[in-house]
Nucleic acid binder design. Structure first.
Length: 227
DNA sequence: GCATTAACGCACG
DNA sequence: CGTGCGTTAATGC
């Protein structure tokens, strides 16, 4: 990670810590079981959802095609549906719990007043919105341009960059996804994930158990992602 | 060929 | 037991 990126994340976390937990503490929390929809297509969204615990899959529903396309995923301390702040509601939007999930539910109206009253919050939201917009755009491009193997490898690299830590020459990410979840996120089949991960393990580029993922040869993996 | 689906057996908590 | 994982054969484009 370059110094600039580090600086910006420090800035963000310091903003976050200033108020976000306190600010949202008065709003109710709601829990969802694995596989449940936090919201789905058709519902006009009346709340902003903020993840306390668990992983959430962002989806676009195409009922005619009988197909759900993943837009990516959200981790704790992220807002799920910031685009609901706009007047122009997105259709076919859905969010599904990948694990047991706890969210804080803030009514839209209350959130708008909070935004007006708290410049730091609006700055935080502004950053988050841009970040989410960008990542959805790249997700979309990857879906068009990359093979399923490449998409899975990109996912691995992205996840390690996001929540991995360096141990010696290797990278370790704890609290990893199941292969089924990886398949949902990358829009691939579960078996494809399984065979690819095992192939990469055979090549000693990665290692994994149910609990964690280790990337042994980051550079080799990056090369595979481009080829 | 590349990827998905179906199917089965196995491991682990 | 259920859930997740690894593999293979069949199918579609």
């Amino acid at each position: 990670m370059n110094p600039l990126a580090v600086a910006s994340t420090f800035q963000k976390t310091s903003i976050k810590e200033f108020s976000l937990t306190n600010l949202l503490s008065s709003y109710p929390q709601k829990s969802f079981k694995k596989g449940a929809y936090i919201f789905r297509e058709g519902h006009s969204l009346k709340y902003i959802y903020f993840i306390q615990q668990g992983k959430v899959l962002s989806l676009t529903n195409y009922l005619t095609a009988h197909k759900e396309l993943s837009n990516g995923y959200f981790l704790p301390n992220q807002f799920i549906n910031l685009n609901s702040l706009s007047n122009q509601q997105l259709k076919n939007q859905a969010a599904k719990a990948l694990s047991a999930v706890t969210v804080t539910q803030i009514p839209l109206l209350a959130f708008h007043t909070l935004l007006r009253q708290t410049p730091c919050l609006s700055q935080l939201i502004f950053n988050a919105l841009i970040e989410q917009g960008n990542s959805q755009k790249t997700q979309c491009h990857q879906l068009i341009l990359l093979s399923s193997h490449q998409r899975i490898i990109h996912f691995l690299l992205e996840y390690v960059e996001k929540s991995g830590s360096r141990v010696g020459y290797e990278w370790v990410a704890r609290d990893f996804f199941t292969q089924h979840q990886i398949a949902l996120i990358t829009n691939t089949a579960r078996q494809t994930v399984s065979t690819l991960l095992n192939e990469l393990r055979r090549q000693r580029i990665i290692h994994f158990t149910k609990k964690y993922l280790i990337i042994r040869e980051l550079e080799a993996l990056k090369k595979l992602a481009e080829s």
